[in-house]
Design a protein around this nucleic acid. Structure first.
Lengths: 332, 332
DNA sequence: TTGTACGCGTTATCAC
DNA sequence: GTGATAACGCGTACAA
């Protein structure tokens, strides 16, 4: 591998000048710039990014922590983030936190030890306090899908509560009154918010919530499976169910059908997230759109703007969900 | 950030000794090791991985190129690879090639400029020659899902042809004789192989292939949608269709139903890949399992063994597919 | 077993 | 505009 030194020799200039044309951060006469460029070309020179990092104390890498690498949700998130950063010549290092406090902390430590210039965190298990502490520790970061007091400008969130509201409202508008709710783990902030939205919609229609209409699931297929079974058993007159994410909705659909119900005639179902497989389902799932890709891009822009000093417009920090009407809701 | 130098001062030893206890690659008296460890602890010292890389010309990072970051297929691949490497203290840099020659080359160049110690490539558009050339260029790599002559020990592949064979054989065994085939883009090696397997199964049963039973799709939902329409139009007596991947199968199922068919009674469908959503479908999709996670791990082990000199058992380079029987095939 | 000294490939601060 | 030269934080012969 050719080095900057060989380039400087061949071009007949100093190291400093070569460095200047590489970074073009200082005036260089056009003639000498050409000489240098030529020399680089002849030698097939590529800057050594490690050495650049050491000298500039900037790694040009951004660490990302997500819950899972697989699953439809994080795929689109990562995809859009990677695109945004690569365009800027930065690269992305990814780690999975698995919604586990220890693993999330471990991932963050790992990324910090990798000298990332910034972190984008989709973490669920660590506490707000931990994040505030992390904020003191030097490595800048932005938080996805979670609102932390005193870090509000670094939080890119979805209005989860409004999403939960919309899901239930959609059902109510279609005439449903006995509505079951399969929630995510209530210790997760988004699960709680979505449920609150559900309650708010119910209240608006003067309907009281009953514990027999609530099931706390796990955000996975199994939660939907068990949830439907439990709900149908507790109250056979349910005409609709809101699932706090699409994976649970998939489990719910399967199980409801196995119990002999025709969908959506006998039972309407609304999901949440609008993941890519939600319209492979049958009936095609009516759900709440979670613009996770756009939110990831916004997080990337925050980093580009604040860490790499790119001139960018203001950052949108809260996103609004909306109903995606498909075929899984029956009007009565 | 504390440096090795401060540690050495506080511990009253030399830089070299501190380095030795960090890497424990040379004998150090237990007493002094403890002193050093203590000092590191007091200072909250963490080695600067960038400086380590520069000095050792080793970045401890592995570059991965996949076609897409989203999509169910690559998610499980990346997830398993990341887990395997992180356990070894390595990290993974990911880039998307989008099945486009220019972008794939760009991704590889990008990763090389990042001083990755090795690359894991799932590339489709670049030529075999390009890969052979890349092999001369220094950066070691392993190839996923593709066999390149003269690089055979670096290729981790699925027996795609046998997979295609199994899919069609399964249908034949269930009494089907008029079998449509929706292929992936035939310039992709795996698409071609799967189709060849299909033909082989047909031949074994003495059935001749007809062009009216073949449709070349795109490996995406749309290919399945158009494929079913074309196939059904060309020959209304088709009783079954093999789709060369699950996404096309999803499109096929939807469209067949929209055309008034009852599945699987009127039309049986077999997919390929066994992606996570294939059992969210209705009917649950019978498909061919592609053990992509295991193959990714194997690629990771290759790197660990050959690049980082870890003692590991031999590497399995070719994997076998198998039929996953679910509900989308009707016996006649 | 431990210490010295140099090198890794750049960036950045001075002078000129 | 351009050129020396000192960092950047660590690994590693070589010497002791």
């Amino acid at each position: 591998m050719a080095t900057i030194y060989e380039v400087s020799k061949l071009a007949g200039v100093s190291l400093a000048t070569v460095s200047r044309v590489i970074n073009n951060n200082a005036p260089v006469r056009e003639a000498t710039r050409v000489k240098v460029l030529d020399a680089m070309d002849k030698l097939g020179y590529h800057p050594n990014s490690i050495a650049q990092s050491l000298a500039s104390s900037r790694s040009n890498s951004i660490g990302i922590v997500v819950s899972e690498l697989n699953g439809p949700f994080f795929g689109t998130l990562l995809s859009d983030i990677e695109t945004a950063f690569r365009r800027a010549g930065k690269h992305v290092i990814i780690a999975a936190g698995h919604s586990d406090e220890r693993l999330e902390k471990e991932s963050i430590a790992f990324l910090k030890s990798r000298n990332c210039d910034a972190l984008i965190l989709h973490v669920e298990a660590v506490s707000d306090d931990y994040l505030r502490q992390l904020n003191e520790s030097g490595t800048p970061f932005v938080i996805l899908n979670r609102f932390v007091d005193s870090l509000s400008d670094r939080c890119v969130t979805l209005n989860n509560q409004h999403g939960g509201y919309l899901a239930t409202q959609h059902l109510l508008r279609n005439g449903h009154r006995k509505i079951g709710y399969i929630s995510g783990p209530m210790w997760k902030n988004d699960a709680e918010q979505r449920y609150l939205g559900h309650l708010r919609a119910l209240a608006e229609y003067g309907i009281e919530s009953k514990s027999s209409l609530f099931y706390e699931g796990d955000f996975h297929e199994l939660g939907g499976v068990k949830g439907v079974a439990a709900l149908l058993h507790a109250d056979a007159e349910i005409t609709a169910i809101v699932c706090a994410n699409d994976e649970m909705a998939a489990g719910a659909v399967t199980t409801a059908r196995e119990q002999g119900l025709t969908l959506p005639d006998d039972l309407s179902i609304v999901g949440f997230d609008n993941v890519n497989f939600s319209h492979y389902m049958y009936p095609k799932l009516t759900t709440i759109d979670y613009p996770i890709g756009g939110m990831g891009v916004m997080a990337a822009r925050w980093v580009l703007k604040h860490i790499y000093q790119q001139k960018l417009d203001n950052i949108q920090t809260v996103f609004e969900p909306r109903v995606i009407e498909r075929d899984s809701v029956h009007s009565i």
